[in-house]
Design a protein around this nucleic acid. Structure first.
Lengths: 245, 245
DNA sequence: TCTTGTTAGATTGTCGGCAATCTGCTTGTC
DNA sequence: GACAAGCAGATTGCCGACAATCTAACAAGA
């Protein structure tokens, strides 16, 4: 009997493609934080009716990168320094857990995949493609989440990833540095291959920490400007949580 | 000048109400795991067109309690023992973090709210309303997440809550016990009022743990039955994550 | 001048219907 | 009888148009 592992074919609904397009536009900074998404305009640009566009938007709202106010519109989320700080401290705890869960499951395939993703990051770095560099770095970092074999953990990470990518892309866009230092992930990869789990956890905390510190400082400086600058109203509406009456 | 703090008025779109209705139906077990949601039938029952219903469904898909397969339908998620186990171990870590973050922020208002929610649970217990008992118990437990002042943490908890409520409701439905023992939350509340943070964390782990153990055992027994029973196919499709190239 | 009522324009929310796709059955052939 | 092709029914995906709501400009009155 022929056994071939086929991966499921791509979703072929307009909705799915629209989701991908919008997400990419947001995460790369083509759509700026706070910006309103005009349904009619976008649907005409994409040559699509508003129905699938609106469904796509609802998905991205739940994914946490859009926010919707009834009869007012759907907006790209505003990024506050506190949001980044929250994500930062939460990420530290998650990292620790992910490494702990992944640690006993590491095998040759894990190491290979680790190297492969590391190589992809270096490739994007050499190509001076900052957007892709952020994306691949997050994918490298995400391996421990994919390997941990915990669906809830992975789900949470993927949600967080969207926001992180948006934050970092925002940062990069602002201070248009050519590209960060040569290889900041080398130590991380080596530690994940090693025998000292606690060292790996510690490094993950501090390594990620450094990137974040810079990011938060930047966000803070932004808020200084906008606090007197204007469009600071229109607070994010209370997320209609599961805890209803 | 008159200063009155008004909270934002309720969402008055059909979509929001549909979301609430569907979520309630799922979390209370009126809609069983694996069951298909027929759009036409539901829209007629609710006297609503399919557009807002479909948008509501997309939200619940992203919320993690529905799963959608293009051109096939939208289904209530299947609950596997591993899912519960994953949520369990993840919840332990989150609890620890939430207590740590909340600890220095506790004040009189926190204690009052804690007592209020505790009272609500006892009330539901006396009324023999198991569904509401689960709901209120989760709200009691959720206070440390609301108080922790971390938007990402709270968001993650609210997502997890949906699934937890579904799991526990499922359990309760099956073994139709009258109502659990009198007051299992007393110690938890007292520890949160006390001075020993580590003790509170430890208790949260073990207390929640016990409930989970029973739940997982039940789920395992269910899978024993369904593994030969039939509708085990139609695996959950790969969640189109943010990483797509 | 400030506040309040009105109105026109734009945008979101919703509806009913059509097109695309899947599923199961029937039919025909070997 | 087994199997492939084709067909009908049901269901999801998508579209265009209408209704409900918001926003901003303008006018009227205190």
């Amino acid at each position: 009997m022929g056994k071939a592992d086929f991966s499921p074919i791509a979703d072929t609904t307009r909705r799915a493609e629209i989701v991908a397009l919008l997400r990419r536009a947001i995460l790369t900074g083509q759509l700026e934080p706070g910006q309103k998404l005009n349904e009619l305009r976008i649907s005409e640009q994409m040559r699509v009716s508003r129905a699938p566009l609106r469904e796509a938007m609802r998905e991205l709202v739940q994914e946490g990168i859009l926010t919707s106010i009834p009869y007012a519109g759907t907006f790209v989320i505003d990024v506050t320094a506190k949001d980044i700080d929250d994500a930062y401290s939460f990420n530290k705890v998650m990292d620790e857990f992910a490494i702990e869960q992944t640690w006993p499951l590491r095998d040759q395939r894990f190491f290979d995949e680790l190297d492969r993703r590391h190589e992809t990051v270096k490739q994007a770095t050499r190509a001076l493609d900052t957007t892709r560099q952020i994306e691949t770095a997050l994918q490298l970092h995400g391996l421990i989440y994919e390997w941990a074999d915990n669906s809830v953990l992975l789900d949470t990470w993927q949600r967080l990833t969207s926001r992180l990518q948006m934050y970092f892309a925002l940062h990069q866009h602002a201070r248009n540095e050519p590209v960060p230092a040569e290889d900041v992930h080398e130590t991380y990869v080596q530690l994940l291959k090693g025998k000292d789990m606690l060292a790996a956890q510690r490094h993950a905390r501090e390594h990620i920490g450094l990137d974040f510190e810079e990011l938060i400082a930047y966000a803070r400086s932004l808020e200084q400007r906008t606090s007197k600058g204007g469009r600071a109203d229109r607070a994010s509406p209370a997320r209609s949580g599961p805890g209803g009456s």
